[in-house]
Design a protein around this nucleic acid. Structure first.
Lengths: 224, 224
DNA sequence: CGTTTTACTTAACTTGATTTAACAGGGTTA
DNA sequence: TAACCCTGTTAAATCAAGTTAAGTAAAACG
């Protein structure tokens, strides 16, 4: 979602992002942005700071009250130090000062998405990840050890991805369930436990890797 | 790891980052940076772009050939559009133009770390710890004695962690209860007493270690 | 168009973690 | 020292997770 009150710039960016493979909605003021956010489901949010009705920082705070994950990038004409910090305090991930190059905007979007949610990256870039002796290819749904390739099923793949993203920290049960299964209920939970067992079998080939349980909280992938 | 050839700026940043809780090593040219990277294990890399011997982009590419995970942030005096893009192409996560504010640098480091690996953030706790003849691995929830590994349950682990942090001093009952159980009440208190008994059994293998009770106050882990 | 394969879910049973209960000692204070 | 509260310990009860297999439905195959 893009929120920008200058219609020229807004349209320009909208077209650019769509051309680059990111389906984008445009909101023209803060109020609209909040509405759109509540209605839709976005993977990335770009907010102009100075807008009528509701400024970008306020919008960000209201979004962050409900959603702590979706990346937010601020666009602004002001480059004051305090403003930049305010942007990060409001839960922003990046802060760009106008005028900026659209290529740089795209580069920043890509790099943030790669870290937060490679599922939605627009380009072909491979998201390989080394896990101990394994190479985990998320896009190809493969786990490679030496010359041995194992195909992962969709659920295995997404679960391993989340574990890997939170490696050495807790992946919370309910977060994983909501992210992968869409709903945290008893049966999905049991299903996830089955997949944890499957992943443990896959990862057994490297004994530095381990999925441990944190009772009542979630799972932790121990990886060097 | 910080790599910066200007000794004044390097020293300044080093001190600032250390003060903010990030243990930082300083390299003063690209060659050194690569060496340090191969030797050490870093959670974040800051590279100046213009450096003698090897420039920042080259360093980043060489690091990325081995490691796709560790975030890289570029610092540079040039703010050319092509240079910025070059930074992202080289596998960088962010790009800051001098002069910059140290607060903003810190904010950007924090926001990138949060997305890449939430568990190295500055307030994270120490990992391994020797307790008498034992090695206590908090992250892996393990207690190691020689070649004997004992898995600890989450509650055992948290409790031993607090005891160990306050070793030879009092760990107050209500503090431990609030920290681990979230609430200091009768039942949680009894539960904790059960875990104290379990830990005593685990630690019995080394008679220099002892958990003693301080009546009405809490527990004290005696450890050399 | 029927059969087989595959991914995923549900079920059933087992194991483990944590809490609660029960009882037995200590420590402190009136 | 008697009464009371705090702690030590063990066992039972409860709830979460581990595991394996059976069920189901859609996709792939022939």
């Amino acid at each position: 979602m893009l929120c920008e009150d200058d219609p020229n710039l807004g349209q320009l960016l909208l077209e650019y992002l769509n051309a680059k493979g990111y389906t984008t909605d445009l909101a023209t003021d803060g109020q609209e942005a909040i509405k759109a956010f509540k209605r839709g489901s976005y993977n990335f949010i770009i907010l102009d700071v100075m807008m009528p009705i509701k400024d970008g920082f306020t919008v960000a705070q209201e979004i962050r009250a409900e959603d702590k994950h979706t990346p937010i990038l601020f666009l602004t004409a002001k480059s004051l130090k305090e403003d930049t910090l305010k942007g990060f305090e409001a839960g922003g991930d990046d802060y760009m000062t106008k005028p900026f190059s659209m290529e740089e905007l795209l580069a920043r979007i890509n790099v943030i998405l790669k870290r937060s949610n490679p599922f939605v990256l627009a380009d072909e870039e491979e998201v390989d990840d080394s896990l101990g002796n394994f190479v985990f290819q998320y896009k190809k749904q493969k786990l490679i050890l030496g010359d041995q390739e194992t195909k992962l099923t969709t659920k295995e793949n997404e679960l391993l991805f989340l574990l890997s993203k939170h490696r050495n920290g807790i992946l919370e049960r309910s977060f994983a369930l909501k992210t992968i299964w869409g709903d945290d209920n008893y049966f999905n939970g049991r299903s996830m436990d089955v997949y944890i067992a499957k992943l443990r079998k896959h990862l057994k080939a490297d004994d530095r890797l381990e999925i441990i349980n944190v009772h009542g909280k979630g799972f932790k992938l121990i990886a060097p």
